[in-house]
């Protein structure tokens, strides 16, 4: 049965990839990218990797599709074909890369082979020791937040670096520019959408908190929770308008949150050093190592959630605001059916 599902999903994946290559309508392409990620998430699920599937679904299918659309809102809806450049060399590079990748997989151990090195060297230690060392059921969470917690701190800093780039190059206005409203383009009139959004947004927010704090027991954690939390507010912004959404979290506060999250995570490490341990050695936080580990994991996951949620919102607000600012000039176009030529 698994094989049939895998074959179906992989076939869909291939169809999606080819469609993305052939599409010239970037709006449709962004949607296909979302679909591509969702199918990938499905594949991860069949591989028994729900944590990764969860992230892929939330980030790949969810937030990055929205960010792509926000970008398209300021640029153009249709791709301009590049002419006059030879496509032979790029094609050759891609073919060679693909061929080498296939060549490299020939000697890989079979998927799920219990004697493969990935199942016999480091992984068994995590599976056997996690309960004694950390005492939480979700081993993935103990690897990400504790055994390899420093990598996770690095990833949070990567997210922070991204928002530093967006704010440095584009910048978020403290007060949004007043522009002429164009009610036709907005979703204001759609009563159904408004009612549904009002119903759904609180549930999504609650779910985000669940994912955040239940990450030790079930798939999830700060990354996914942050993305889901941001998605709820972005949904609110899409339906009720940017100004209303900005009143939920004032930009002045929002702009400080990414750095605050990094400092919560990194500061936990400094705290453990002050208490006489190594960097991010949560054992120092309390008497019992298990309770200390769990406390440390909760602290750093809060840092992750704060940074990820605020970064996603900041990037969305910055992009959306620019799109709106440029509309009256006639540069750039946003809505469906807009003339982008």
């Amino acid at each position: 049965m698994d094989t049939v599902v895998d074959i179906l999903l992989l076939a869909f994946l291939a169809v999606c990839a080819i469609a993305i290559l052939r599409l010239r309508d970037l709006f449709a392409m962004a949607m296909m990218f979302g679909l591509f990620s969702l199918i990938t998430a499905g594949l991860f699920t069949t591989m028994d990797a729900p944590d990764v599937a969860f992230t892929e679904a939330a980030v790949g299918a969810g937030i990055s599709t929205i960010l792509m659309l926000a970008t398209l809102a300021q640029t153009a809806r249709r791709e301009q074909p590049v002419t006059g450049r030879s496509k032979l060399l790029p094609l050759l590079v891609v073919w060679v890369t693909g061929a080498v990748l296939i060549y490299g997989t020939v000697d890989l151990p079979a998927f799920g082979d219990p004697s493969a090195p990935v199942h016999t060297h480091v992984a068994p230690y995590y599976l056997q020791q996690s309960t004694a060392d950390i005492g939480i059921p979700n081993v993935v969470a103990s690897i990400l937040a504790s055994y390899r917690g420093y990598d996770t701190l690095g990833e949070v800093v990567v997210v922070f670096a991204a928002v530093v780039g967006v704010l440095a190059l584009l910048g978020l206005r403290a007060r949004p520019p007043r522009v002429v409203r164009r009610p036709v383009r907005r979703l204001d009139q759609h009563a159904v959408l408004k009612v549904i959004a009002k119903l759904v947004v609180p549930v999504i927010l609650l779910f985000a908190l669940y994912v955040q704090f239940h990450g030790e027991y079930s798939p999830g954690g700060g990354f996914q929770a942050g993305v889901i939390f941001a998605a709820a507010i972005i949904l609110f912004a899409l339906v009720f308008g940017l100004d209303e959404a900005r009143q939920v979290i004032p930009p002045r506060v929002l702009q400080r949150l990414p750095a605050a999250g990094v400092l919560i995570f990194g500061g936990t490490g400094l705290l453990t050093m002050l208490l006489g341990g190594n960097y991010l050695d949560y054992d120092m936080l309390r008497e019992s190592p298990q309770k200390a580990q769990q406390m440390g994991i909760i602290m750093v996951e809060i840092g992750v959630g704060v940074t990820v949620a605020s970064v996603m919102l900041l990037i969305y607000f910055t992009f959306a605001e620019r799109g709106r600012h440029r509309r009256p000039d006639g540069n750039g176009d946003d809505g469906p059916g807009g003339a982008a030529e």
């Binding site: 690095g154 990567v158 670096a161 991204a162 530093v164």
Partner: peptide
């Protein structure tokens, strides 16, 4: 001393570099 950690910090410095060049 960790191969994956190299990648993480490579990303941090690369993202920062793209920003700095763009300024």
């Amino acid at each position: 001393g960790d191969a994956f950690n190299v990648f993480v910090f490579l990303e941090i410095s690369s993202l920062a570099t793209y920003t700095l060049i763009g300024l």
